[in-house]
Simulated scan of single mutants.
Amino acid sequence: MLKSELTALLAPRRDNDVVIDVDGVRVPLVGVTYCNVGDQIVLSMDPAELDGAMRAAVLPHCRRCGCTEGAACPGGCAWASDEQQVAAGLDPMLGDVCTACVPQPVGAGS
């Protein structure tokens, strides 16, 4: 499929079927154009939506469910320690995980 054909398919979509992921925060497109000079698809976002997404992206959030300090999991959660993540087979260097998303280590609770 040519980029110009893809642009023609995406341009009329305004129902959040096409979004841009900004570190886990989805921002809807407000425009899709094709630039034949650079052979590029140009995606336009609302500056206020992008600003909100960027602010949300820098807040600590669970890499599995997306919860934050201000919007915890139903039933509550906390940040899992590095030790808890390692015990569950997760790599703490990949980012924060909440306690609700940390799988129980094999044999735990028996």
Rank of each mutant, 00 (worst) to 15 (best):
E5W: 08
L6R: 13
A8R: 14
L9Y: 07
L10M: 15
P12M: 04
P12A: 03
P12I: 01
P12E: 07
R13Y: 03
D15F: 02
D15Y: 01
V18A: 07
V18M: 04
V18S: 01
V19H: 02
V19M: 08
G24M: 08
V25K: 12
V27S: 05
P28Y: 05
P28V: 01
P28S: 07
L29N: 01
L29G: 00
G31Y: 03
V32E: 00
T33S: 11
T33F: 01
T33L: 02
C35W: 00
V37W: 01
G38R: 12
D39F: 04
D39N: 15
D39T: 07
I41S: 07
V42F: 02
L43E: 07
L43Q: 07
D46P: 01
E49S: 05
E49P: 02
E49V: 00
L50V: 08
L50W: 14
D51G: 08
A53C: 06
A56K: 15
A56E: 06
V58G: 08
V58Y: 07
L59T: 09
P60D: 04
P60I: 00
C62Q: 10
R63P: 02
G66D: 03
C67I: 10
T68P: 04
G70A: 10
G70S: 12
G70T: 09
A71L: 09
A71S: 09
A71R: 13
A72L: 10
C73K: 13
G75V: 00
G76A: 11
C77G: 12
A78C: 07
W79I: 12
W79P: 08
A80T: 05
Q84F: 07
Q85C: 04
V86Y: 13
A88T: 05
G89I: 02
G89F: 08
G89R: 11
L90Q: 09
D91E: 14
D91Q: 13
P92N: 14
M93D: 13
M93I: 09
L94D: 12
L94A: 13
D96M: 15
P105G: 11
P105D: 09
G107M: 04
A108I: 03
A108P: 06
